[in-house]
Design a protein around this nucleic acid. Structure first.
Lengths: 206, 206, 206, 206
DNA sequence: AATGAATGAGCCTTCATTCAT
DNA sequence: TATGAATGAAGGCTCATTCAT
């Protein structure tokens, strides 16, 4: 997939990657705490360990930071999921493992995901679309896992889409509805029960 | 439930209500368009039909407007749902009608709900908690509907909680994941399929 | 002539005029001292006697101030010249009086004119054209004076244009070449000699 | 005349000259386009073909560039005029040729001259005076041409000064009042008519 | 009660200049 | 000599909030 390019004054590619990673790390920690709008570029620079001038050597606008953050979060999630998928052969067991891994990942990254959900809208059109495409990719990953793990099950494509979406947001829900859910469920319980009902939905007996 | 009080300089209660409704209406329309942070108090005042000075006679800070908006949205949703519930006697049919009504409501109010999801975090602690309580109330409504409609089904409380939450966010998902879902489903299809799988989850045959 | 409108948040027309005059006065004094680019908006606000916030209630950008200044200078010059013209009937004497008055005016306003010459280029296209039109008007005034004062002299239109332009810039030259001219001439001497040669150019004997 | 020294870290004289000429060429082209203040040192470096670090090996401040540019422009004009003067013996014809050559030169270099007029004021005192001296020299050249070409004409020194100044600015006027003049005159017409009236001023019959 | 002019803290961004390599 | 990454002071502008009328 074509990667949206954020322009930088600095030419050295490695340095750009290094500084941007510093930036992303600093920014995420600030966005978690106070959101995008309440975080100033100076704070981002400071938290990243360099001056405001340096910050602007690596981006063009504050929004670029948000985009970098969103992009990085999705990239991480995607890579982690791909890792799990690569480890097994398609089967019901694999399906359950992937969903479990996804839920665990959402638990680990709940703050990052929260940030994304609340701030994507602040991105300009083009960047927003890029991020949505990333999300689309992730739902597609789940869809393919379902299809490949249940080859004979004859679920319609639309239903697979629906179920994949449901799984996707059930994962996110764990993070951004934590005030409600995490009072009543431990992560494992949550995963177990969701998997239990997923099996029912897919007519899989155990 | 105790209502969080927003202070106003104006004493006439009716006038306060009238002006605040103007404000909420104006603000929602602006927040939908550009979000809370990008909307200025001047714009809210203008859209509401009065001056910036007057705006500040009825609230203390810009955040108060956001709170009023969030509160109003939940209140509307809750009232609408209660109306549907009041119309029928508990039964599987009622359960399906309530869920259907809730999904339709989320379709109607998708922009309002989107606003809320993205901006609640900007509220101060206390206001945030108030809004979360409202949400809690709504999940509880769904929970009670499930329980009263399926008295003999022996679903554990935690599972009911989980299922209610799932329904709750499946409704919201329709709105804030519209870019993905509304390309592939019509509202009715979406509702039908979700209800179909809900029946499976609840072991209800038709 | 259509006046280019500078937008203001403040509605009260009289107040806008009053504040803008304060602004123009303050700005001219600063521009004289350090030029447009080296003057900050904060300084303009302070010199004008109000806060930076108030400054921006009456203009949209710093450039607006420059435009206001340029516009005001031309307007003053034009009005002063019209006054002189209105006082007499066309004749060689009147021509000399107008030219003399113009030179004296340029002496009085030499700093303002200097500012204009050096900063007009900083204006955006549209504003620049507006200012150039003003200049055009002034050359036309001189042209008409020449024509009406010397009805039988049969100077071609192009030559009148040229001579009017020469007078125009000889006036400005007194101000912005002051380092050279004002070392060697007193204002009266300068005017006398320029008038002397103007008479030769126009073939008028005295 | 003593040349104002711009300090350089680099010792090799030839290299300094070479790099500075690159700089002047690059800077003039940028100043023409956007003025001194809107041009950044980075842009100057890039346009000159070297890095920002290198730029600062050959100058101390951005203003130095402006000075170098102004100095170079005057030097060019002066040299070109001297060339014309050297080619002929003093006579009315020579006077006309010099004036014509000067006007043609001003046409060729109108953008450079415009730059100078609008930016000299940004120079610091000392540099400004140096540039003004250059201008003084040029007026003196014109003065001497008039005197040597019209030995018996008995024009007072002050009048010669005045006339030389008038010629000087009529030349510049062609460039920086181009929006008005160049709509109505072709260069040749402009020169012809100015020369025609100059002859009248000097009482020379043809 | 309503108005809207005034305020100024604070934000994003730029850019001349330096300095380690 | 040449490079270009780093710096941070400073600038233009916004906007929530106040207060005199």
């Amino acid at each position: 997939m074509e990667r949206k390019k954020i322009l930088s004054n600095v030419k050295n590619r490695e340095l750009v990657m290094k500084r941007r990673n510093q930036m992303i790390k600093g920014a995420i920690s600030l966005f978690k705490e106070k959101g995008f709008h309440r975080t100033t570029t100076r704070e981002i620079a400071k938290e990243s360990g360099f001056s405001i001038g340096t910050l602007y050597e690596y981006i063009r606008t504050k929004e670029d930071v948000l985009f970098l953050v969103c992009d990085s979060i999705y990239e991480q999630v995607k890579q982690r999921l791909e890792l799990v998928i690569a480890k097994e052969v398609p089967s019901v067991k694999m399906l359950k493992n992937v969903v479990r891994a996804y839920f665990e990942l959402m638990d680990e990254m709940q703050e990052e995901v929260l940030v994304m959900y609340q701030e994507v809208k602040s991105l300009e059109k083009e960047a927003q679309e890029y991020v949505l495409k990333k999300e689309r990719e992730m739902v597609d990953m789940l869809k393919q896992v379902i299809e490949s793990c249940l080859p004979e099950h004859n679920i319609s494509d639309m239903d697979t889409e629906l179920i994949a979406n449901n799984i996707f947001i059930q994962g996110q829900m764990w993070g951004f509805r934590r005030w409600i859910l995490q009072k009543q469920f431990k992560l494992d319980e949550y995963i177990d029960r969701q998997l239990f009902y997923l099996m029912r939905v897919l007519l899989i007996e155990e």
